[in-house]
Design a protein around this nucleic acid. Structure first.
Lengths: 218, 218
DNA sequence: TGACATAGTGTAGACGCGACACTAACTTTG
DNA sequence: CAAAGTTAGTGTCGCGTCTACACTATGTCA
């Protein structure tokens, strides 16, 4: 059997968050590279004694300080020519970070930035294809799972949740139909609290009952 | 950044076919191994200049002589301890082979066998998890795509198609409801031909209009 | 010609989904 | 303190879809 050695195996992570009503992706700007000037996904080589998900989780933590958030394997990209420096296969993941968890993380810096998925800069390698696939997967999962709740903080209003759906799907949803759908999810719960107002009628606050669980519905 | 070299990257392929009303998986029996006596999925190391899908496709062709069938990436398995001989990450695929394409392939031999998914022998590594995941994915795709047509030959009857669904799902389906659902798929076509009888009323023969396309429905 | 075996067909009730517009409650300002 | 502004919150009706369910049609074979 052919056993020529591979150059390397990497993981890349599409880190999503939502801010200013936009779905955003964390990107790293590259220096000294065939791709200098471009941006790329946070990622790196997988050490020999580290699991794939473990590695992706570490990348996420190193870049954002965030841990314990939703992380799912996306796809593995392995075209021989995808990295001009040599053969690198990338096992990609995507992660969802609630905006409230991003306290200390610079929102935009020279080397790290949160870019709107629909206005990405030029990306290195095949990273734009990876981001597109991750966005598709996320949007698809909205329809048949409770994955959107991973973007919510401790307490949230139904309007905030609807806004998350609309931001990810890129289209407005009907308010009454949305509330019907969402209110008889088993994993969401009215806290009874009603405050946190603006200059208008205060909204009910809801809570996710099992915050780390993503349920398949329908 | 840590760059210790990986031992290797492999692909493994879950090759499905249907025969005798059973969903079966192609397995290879292992000799001289920590897993001697066990069976495993067909697979092997990925050469440095070969794409992942290309590699999986070659594995399939080498074991079965079959090419040009449905092949899809499933998942990448990379726990550090999954292979006792060293660090091997496996990018797994699954393939669907219509029974009619398996002319010359031995149905059961010492080193190659078609095993029913629900009666597998002991498998090496984490291959049973891989097979289970592939079966789940396939069953899920029956619901929202036309993937089942990948098991059909040139012409087929609706009863044959129903049997494929039932075999994969492991449960009987209502005949009338099934036919309603399937007859207004756009990608299926009545050939007008009606023969191919047993000792009973002959059935209509259908044809897939775009045999290599798997459509998403609903 | 009758027994047998599979092919083939329709309907009625339950349910889910989308379209659609107004009232409720709080804040701010004049 | 009244009115304007702003978001929260609510229900119904029609349509299409899914499910459950049983009998007739058409061939073969003895």
């Amino acid at each position: 059997m052919t056993e020529r050695q591979l150059t390397g195996l990497a993981t890349d992570v599409v880190v999503f968050t939502i801010s200013e009503h936009r779905l955003r992706v964390l990107l790293v700007s590259r220096s000294r590279d065939p791709y200098a000037g471009c941006w790329s996904l946070p990622g790196g080589m997988v050490p020999i004694d580290e699991g794939l998900e473990e590695c992706a989780s570490r990348m996420l933590r190193e870049k954002t300080g965030v841990h314990g958030v939703y992380l799912e394997q996306l796809y593995s990209f392995g075209e021989p020519e995808r990295d001009p420096r040599g053969r690198v296969v990338s096992v990609s993941y995507y992660a969802l970070v609630p905006p409230g968890r991003l306290q200390g993380v610079a929102l935009n810096g020279d080397t790290l930035g949160w870019w709107p998925v629909d206005q990405l800069p030029e990306l290195a390698f095949d990273h734009d294809a990876i981001v597109r696939m991750a966005h598709q997967r996320l949007a698809a999962k909205l329809e048949y799972s409770t994955i959107a709740l991973q973007f919510m903080g401790e307490r949230f209003t139904l309007s905030e949740l609807q806004s998350v759906y609309e931001t990810i799907l890129g289209e407005p949803l009907d308010k009454r139909n949305f509330r019907k759908r969402v209110r008889n999810l088993p994993c969401i719960e009215d806290t009874g609290e009603r405050f946190r107002a603006g200059k208008h009628r205060p909204a009910r606050l809801f809570r996710v009952t099992r915050p780390h669980r993503v349920e398949i519905i329908k």
